[in-house]
Design a protein around this nucleic acid. Structure first.
Lengths: 157, 157
DNA sequence: GAGTTAATGGTCAATGAAGGTCATAATGTC
DNA sequence: GACATTATGACCTTCATTGACCATTAACTC
């Protein structure tokens, strides 16, 4: 739980929450020094924690004056988001990517905690084992179906 | 009676009873050391004593910073869920029976309208077609998983 | 302006640190 | 003694962390 990667993740998210612009900029070496770790550890945290499914975009620049920029992506409520998601999901969806997506939707308050738990529970590989030859494809189908139904007007009546 | 497995079981249940959050987290190696046993003995205790039918869920994470989490399922006074779950094991569940069951649970306010819509939407035959040879068995498995997770004590924390 | 150098960040393979699985041995129970 | 339960150890998978080496950019020199 209290791994270094987790602490760096929390730290960055904390700053990001404060950032009015919706993004933060910092230098890799500086952050690595701050946490007394290898610089590549920062890349590890960024690639595993700040992915598109989780709602983040990372930009960078090398050379003197180089930097890392982590951008928090917002959702727009007019359904453009669902199309983007569907595109992001594609034809296959692993359990891990599904979990990331669902967590993200919970953060955006599109799902309640209960909904997130229930959906994640039936998206687990262990549910499909021995019954579904291509769990990734089925998961993608189910996730898209859920996204489509979220848009229904009558869903919260 | 005073087997090691029983002592570990009692120990975990004791802590779990105190836990306000409805779950406990610990490391397998630490617990194994504490009881001077093989780490796999912990798995044995968890898989034989902390099953959904007995009122528990177990989650875990591997790798550095890994952990085990045992979640207490809430009381189910009439044993309704437990009976339903037991029935669904190895059972088959058609789309129609699933819809009826979900509707009933919505009437009993176990599910919100939104939850019912979402779950029914991904339980449809059309989702499974060409991907799942035995959709009825998969549906039963998913339904059982959902019933178990509904009872999670940490779901509203 | 071209070339050089220093200051960044990127990649990847190796290693460490957890938990998972399974066959089998040991122990209890009747 | 036969069967069921418990306990272990060898081997596997997943996640974290580091360091060596690579790529890009800015600044500096001429």
């Amino acid at each position: 739980m209290g791994s270094l990667a987790n602490r760096i993740e929390e730290y960055l998210k904390g700053i990001l929450d404060q950032a009015e612009e919706g993004y933060i900029i910092f230098q890799r070496g500086f952050l690595a020094d701050f946490f007394s770790c290898a610089p590549s550890q920062i890349n590890y945290v960024l690639t595993t924690r700040f992915t598109a499914e989780r709602g983040y975009l990372v930009e960078s620049r090398r050379g003197g004056g180089g930097y890392l920029r982590v951008i928090r992506l917002g959702l727009d409520p007019d359904g453009k988001f669902q199309r983007l998601m569907a595109e992001l999901i594609g034809e296959e969806l692993s359990q891990e990517r599904a979990n990331n997506l669902i967590d993200r939707l919970e953060e955006e308050e599109i799902f309640t905690k209960k909904e997130a738990i229930l959906i994640k529970s039936i998206f687990a590989d262990s549910i499909f084992v021995d019954l579904v030859p291509s769990p990734e494809i089925l998961r993608a189908r189910m996730m898209k179906e859920i996204l489509a139904n979220i848009c229904r007007d009558d869903i919260n009546v």
